[in-house]
Simulated scan of single mutants.
Amino acid sequence: MKKGQGKKESRLERAVKNMFQANSYSSSSNGYSHSVQHLPENILIEMKLPGIKKEHLSYEYVNGNLRIQIDQRDGPLVTETIFVGDNIDESNIQATFLEGVLSLTLKKLDGQ
C-alpha cells in the first residue's frame, strides 16, 4: 500500500456507512433485492420478487424485525429478516404487491 492511501473499505463497511448517512440502503440476498428507506413518519421497504405470486408471500413483525417469507414452490422456503426497530405501529403496516415488487409501509409510533 502506498503512503497516503487508506485501507480499502469492505462492501459491508460501505453498506453500513451508507445506511447511517442516508437513512436508506439496498441489499440483495437469496437472489432477491430489497431497499429500505427511513423517513420521519414511516419506513418504506421494497423487495423485487420476479416470478413470485402474491399468494406465496407472507410477512410478520416480530421483536423489531420484519420477517418476509417467500414460498418458491419449486425450491426451499426463503425467509428475509429486516431489522426495523421497536417503534413500529403493528396495526398500521400496509403492503402492496404489483408487477413482482412487494412494497411495505411501516408507520412509526408517534412519528419517531
Rank of each mutant, 00 (worst) to 15 (best):
K107R: 10
Y61D: 01
D71L: 08
K17N: 07
G51R: 05
I52R: 02
D71P: 03
E99N: 14
E60M: 12
M19A: 13
R11L: 14
R73C: 03
V62I: 15
L12Q: 15
I70K: 00
I88C: 02
L44K: 02
R73E: 07
D89P: 04
E60R: 15
K53A: 07
L44G: 01
G51D: 05
F83C: 02
A95V: 11
T105M: 05
G4F: 04
F20V: 12
S33N: 13
S91A: 11
G100Y: 03
R67T: 10
H38V: 11
D74L: 09
K53T: 07
D89Y: 09
S29A: 14
Y32P: 01
L104P: 00
G4P: 00
Q21S: 13
T105S: 13
G6L: 08
N65I: 05
Q21D: 10
K3R: 07
L57M: 11
D71M: 09
L77N: 09
N18K: 10
Q69N: 12
E80R: 15
G6W: 08
E41H: 07
M1K: 06
E99I: 09
Y61V: 02
K107H: 04
K8C: 03
P40M: 07
D74N: 14
G100A: 04
Q5T: 13
K107L: 09
I82L: 14
L77T: 07
